[in-house]
Design a protein around this nucleic acid. Structure first.
Lengths: 354, 354
DNA sequence: GCTAGTCTCTGTATCGATACAGACTGGATC
DNA sequence: GATCCAGTCTGTATCGATACAGAGACTAGC
């Protein structure tokens, strides 16, 4: 068994407090005694104050949690998530804080417990699915958090960093509408909790649970409404999970329909790249000239020539962590909206006249 | 202030232990009492057992640390590191364990403290620079760890997962030597701790501190020794930091020398891609046909047509975490060597006859 | 010579839980 | 009716530190 602080105190013949001070408040004791204590500690093989005991007493941990409401391995697979993490990491580094990545088991009860048990001082909630329960647990614990998805019921004091999803999506859709496209498909991740992959009839956008997805779909709908196309006239395709192959599989069949879409607007670059994959998989003579847009502008998008909406991923992570680690005095400053920009590349073009 | 377990106990009129059992050992009390306790807890707003206090008493934390001896943000920038993390994440997920990413301050004293203070049950040490001090701290703390860099002084009981760096590097170099190249440059990250970027004269490979870099350079040297080229005849280029632009900058000047290398062997794909960048940056008429090899086979390598040595990145992370989280009874099984494969693409070709 | 103030260091309470031994209850067994 | 046992619950020690009030020693000032 490793020696404790008590053991060191006994060895030197001082009190526990003094040994504690030798480590944490060197100005509270003479330099010579401090040396004597540290020497004894070295000799005994004392590993320094136990982090857990220290955290308990001090009342804080020195690490922030990052929550992904999905598989943890997903976080490293999605390029946008990786950039976001890089931003969080950079801020954490500056503050000398660690990042705890908490995997969430599929069952909600287990997942709740995971959030309850995380030893952190606060959470950055990066959500890819329904997250209310997670926020509930965090509030229950009395921990601060920063959300990256705008929620309607957000308290005024709740910190947030994100973009105007709806306006950003609208800019992409307006671009496509401006090119003349009127047979349009929208593809998004987890439109409804347990909906199967493929086309999905939805009465209205407001049925979409996840605020980010809802915001983006609303934006798409807005732009087409302006050119006289209503929601029911748009084809909605659901993908369970934000992955390239899943998107490809979900949309593939659509291009064999009698009147296939001439444009596909995706809720993320990953999905858009999947759509491009699905098109590329078809024989060259049977490859309709479909315009495709993405969202995020991940590194891969440029290489693929994907028209997309750029949002500052790393910045988002950095600011999220910053808001958590050193909260602005002004509550209004705790609500940060980042700029977005439509990046037009080769994946969109005028509707073919055939 | 949030209520404690004690407060719940008082409210229900039972002992602390019973409340504790209500959460952690439901079989130790009647179902009705348990319900009564949980109800009271809900009503009081008790957030459930405090994770820190629980860890202290139980003696373990439920999270593993991942150590990068470099900037934390680097971990999310290097594609190989990201794949590695994905592997660790997948294993952690399966075990219901969290991952703590600990940023290391530049000063060694601060960095030591960071490792001392990390509340974890063990470490996966992913090292990109000199790491001995970190392992010392971990041993001092009496925590288990898994290293991914083979070290000469590794104890028999120390767990390891990695590849035969030397043999793998040799296979790449043998390929290049077989193509007839004899004017060869090697480029690697942090060959010597504070060496500047650019060509570096080094008496021998054994002067290289970092075992991974040393292993790879040795392998390169081996293959060329076999065709009669000794170490002094190879040009060594140092890059401080494993980054694409840094590699490009470090090597650029080399191609303007009287007898420029016809092949460049890089210690990593990231460096190799940097070398390709440096070549691509030259005007087409002044672009020597240089063969380039990398190491790792990151996703970008395939797109760039880079000849490289493939090693299973995600697997490495997964196994590292696995070895940590559920250590094999047999000590020998704690030492895992992963397979590698030379992947020949378009970036290497026969030496031009001019 | 006395009081005040500064430096060091000690002692005890506390952080918030869990482990474990033991006590009580009620029913089954002989 | 005594014994045993399983099922519940309590009490106390413990995990390993830090915070804070306070005690002695020593210097300084008047």
């Amino acid at each position: 068994m490793k020696p404790t602080l008590q053991a060191v105190a006994d060895a030197v013949g001082v009190s526990r407090s003094t040994v504690s001070n030798a480590y944490s408040r060197p100005d509270q004791l003479s330099a010579t005694l401090r040396e004597r204590i540290l020497d004894a500690a070295r000799q005994l093989g004392y590993p320094g104050p136990n982090p857990t005991a220290r955290s308990l007493r001090r009342g804080f941990v020195g690490s922030i949690g990052v929550l992904f409401t999905s598989q943890l391995s997903y976080a490293f697979t999605d390029p946008f998530a990786v950039r976001f993490l890089a931003g969080v990491g950079a801020a954490a580094e500056r503050h000398g804080t660690s990042m705890l990545l908490v995997p969430l088991p599929p069952a909600v009860t287990d997942a709740r417990r995971a959030v309850e048990n995380a030893a952190v001082d606060g959470f950055c909630v990066y959500c890819v699915a329904d997250e209310e329960w997670a926020l509930d647990v965090i509030r229950q614990r009395g921990l601060p958090f920063v959300s990256t998805a705008a929620r309607d019921d957000a308290g005024a004091d709740e910190r947030f960093v994100g973009i105007d999803e709806r306006a950003a999506a609208r800019s992409a859709a307006a671009h496509v509408a401006g090119l003349g496209h009127r047979r349009v498909a929208l593809i998004a991740d987890s439109v409804l909790p347990d909906a199967p992959a493929g086309p999905l009839a939805l009465a209205g956008v407001d049925q979409v649970r996840h605020p980010t997805t809802r915001g983006r779909l609303s934006g798409f709908a807005d732009a087409f409404a302006e050119v006289g196309l209503n929601w029911a006239e748009l084809t909605l395709v659901n993908v369970p999970g934000n992955s390239r192959p899943a998107a490809a599989a979900a949309i593939a069949g659509l291009f064999d329909q009698p009147a296939p879409p001439t444009a596909v607007l995706a809720g993320s670059d990953v999905l858009a790249l999947g759509v491009l994959d699905a098109l590329a998989a078809r024989p060259a003579h049977d490859r309709p000239p479909v315009s495709v847009t993405g969202f995020d502008d991940v590194p891969e998008a440029a290489a693929a020539g994907l028209t997309t909406v750029r949002q500052p991923a790393e910045e988002k992570g950095r600011i999220a962590a910053e808001l958590l680690l050193d909260p602005p005095a002004d509550a209004a400053a705790g609500h940060v909206l980042l700029p977005t920009a439509l990046v037009v590349r080769s994946s969109t073009g005028p509707v073919p006249r055939s």
